[in-house]
Design a protein around this nucleic acid. Structure first.
Lengths: 344, 344
DNA sequence: ATTAGCACTCAAGCAAGATGAGTGCTAACC
DNA sequence: GGTTAGCACTCATCTTGCTTGAGTGCTAAT
């Protein structure tokens, strides 16, 4: 009962959606009658629309208003009807490639460029370093009872962690510890550092075993602690451009969500484990993984910069967002990101 | 013509302000007549209010509405009439002291606590490290042609900078460089590292002089680059609680300002150079240093954590914000911050 | 100097049309 | 049978006029 949408119904539905995307107003039969090349009178369109309503693709906000697409219609549109328009997106590339070393700056920039280019709000999450290898480790005595641990992971992600110690360590001890830890841990993935290895290291460190313990904690914390889920947002104010989102309660909620980035983290990581598809996911309305966004649509893309270094980009806008353009922008942006970074 | 506000006028003005702060509605003569202990009829109040209007302290939003205070009245209020109520602020202290080592986390927390506690939006700028001393410097070879420079400044602010080199440096060279730089630079303030010293160091480094140059650049960049002006915001959505700010255009502008943190930087640093006063500044309406905030009031406080380590906290709300409470909260928060960190 | 009283103003709320976009249905048409 | 013209109906939105009530300013009396 749902697959049978004949060609004409599809055309009409498509017209309704496109029209609504542009205007944001309910669209009526007369408009469609003129808008399409079907040369049908408004009455015929009305009959068809009536059918489409029954099938759950469009609804009237109130009797005798035009129809607006439902989530289901958007879903159909995104899955089957969308033809990408790859215009003017090329310019994005130029904006990105400049300071290629500082990862965080680049990502902030990505968020910004996408926000201004699409006129929606964007969220970029920094790469998850899960599964990545330890590249370098350095302990330094900063003063009598503070040690600075610098941890560098593949992809040049750097973490600092301060460790308090009670005893003052000599230079030789520091040197020994550094050599010990580097020789044993460098090149290992996090999963490969197991408990056995840790206890072995502690033994070798002798009386300074507890420091090794602290260092290991620091490594663990630095790498998989919540802090590593750096998130950059941009264009939050864009939501004011869409009346259906900018009534006070909703706007407030959305802005709040943007500040409380933890909810966004969920959104970002949700589908990170999914493989297979092109990496672009579209969530429409209630499909969105975050409650506050049930009146929005969210388009997410996952980028991969190397062994297990995966982050994601999300664009949040009204349900009637310009899916074509967003998906296009997102795709070029991702490619560009991967191109710039993959050489590492 | 302006100093002469007799005692009664002051009392009435005070009553008007307090009442307006609470309700947000224009306040009329009858209300005041009951609200104060002056035992005057509404008619008398009317006469006095008429005078006050002429003197520019209150205005009517339209004929036959009550009066609301002008910027000038707020200014008078803040300068002379405010008596601090230091209740319930104490609880703030508890919320703050927990993870005392990670400066950025603490500041984020400060922003958050203040925002939830006052119901206004807050901005906290991380300390300017200008004038601070270099505590520790470490160069490490991360791979063939990348060197990681870790720079620790007094107050345990840590910066990482990647340096690309063309030649691969030997372990001994690295060690030498480290010793050279640390012995000469540690303990110095930025201003004390002058050009003469730099060329001297370069000479001593011999063929690796250019690396020294890069390191110095990194130090300079890391410490006084714009990046060091880390800014934390919280409670942006609080502005939706005040109708006079939450109409779409204004809200959008404010949110935008919050995202474009550079404007806030200006606000934060503006009065950093001023000395003398308690460190708390109140900007009312047009006095605010940022255009987008001309309908708000901004209360800023400067905290000082040691030699020249100064940051600032700002609270942004409607003109009718509860100045007493805000100033109180801000003051305890600052004291607490300084107490926790000054022992370093 | 203070107050009571009264006329006046004006935002805001409400009810009663007027408007118009859009629908559903029926009967006629090809 | 599919298509269309025509018409009655619905309902959000706009307009208009009316009422209400808070609040003022002024004047005359205390």
């Amino acid at each position: 009962m749902q697959a049978e949408l004949d060609e004409r119904k599809k055309k009409i539905l498509h017209a309704v959606i496109r029209n609504y995307l542009e205007t944001g107003e309910p669209v009526g039969s007369r408009t469609i009658s003129k808008y399409t090349d079907l040369n049908l009178s408004s009455a015929t369109i009305r009959n068809e629309m009536s059918d489409l309503e029954e099938l759950g693709y469009i609804v009237q906000p109130h009797t005798s208003a035009g129809r607006i697409p439902t989530d289901r219609a958007y879903r159909l549109y995104v899955d089957n009807m969308m033809q990408e328009k790859d215009k003017e997106i090329e310019e994005l590339k130029g904006l990105l490639v400049q300071t290629e070393d500082k990862m965080d700056k680049v990502l902030k920039n990505v968020a910004k460029v996408l926000a201004t280019n699409t006129n929606y709000a964007t969220v970029v999450s920094a790469p998850q370093i899960r599964g990545n290898r330890l590249k370098f480790l350095q302990l330094s005595r900063v003063d009598e009872n503070q040690i600075l641990a610098v941890i560098v992971v593949e992809g040049n992600v750097i973490r600092n962690e301060m460790i308090h110690v009670n005893e003052t360590l000599s230079d030789e001890t520091m040197l020994k510890l550094n050599i010990l830890l580097n020789t044993h841990l460098t090149g290992l993935a996090l999963e490969e550092i197991n408990l056995g290895m840790i206890t072995a290291l502690k033994e070798q460190a002798g009386i300074h075993g507890d420091i090794v313990g602290e260092v290991m904690d620091a490594i663990a914390q630095a790498i998989k602690g919540e802090e590593d889920l750096e998130i950059y947002t941009s264009g939050a104010n864009n939501i004011f451009k869409y009346p259906e989102l900018s009534d006070n309660r909703k706007a407030s909620e959305l802005i709040n969500t943007f500040e409380e980035k933890k909810a966004l983290a969920k959104l970002a990581t949700e589908k990170l484990s999914d493989e297979g598809n092109t990496g672009i996911q579209v969530y429409i309305g209630e499909e969105a993984p975050v409650q506050a966004m049930k009146d929005c649509s969210v388009v997410t893309a996952t980028y991969e910069l190397g062994e297990g270094m995966r982050g994601s980009i999300a664009i949040i806008g009204p349900k009637r967002m310009d899916y074509d353009k967003v998906v296009g922008s997102l795709r070029t942006m991702m490619n560009e990101l991967e191109r710039v970074y993959k050489k590492d």
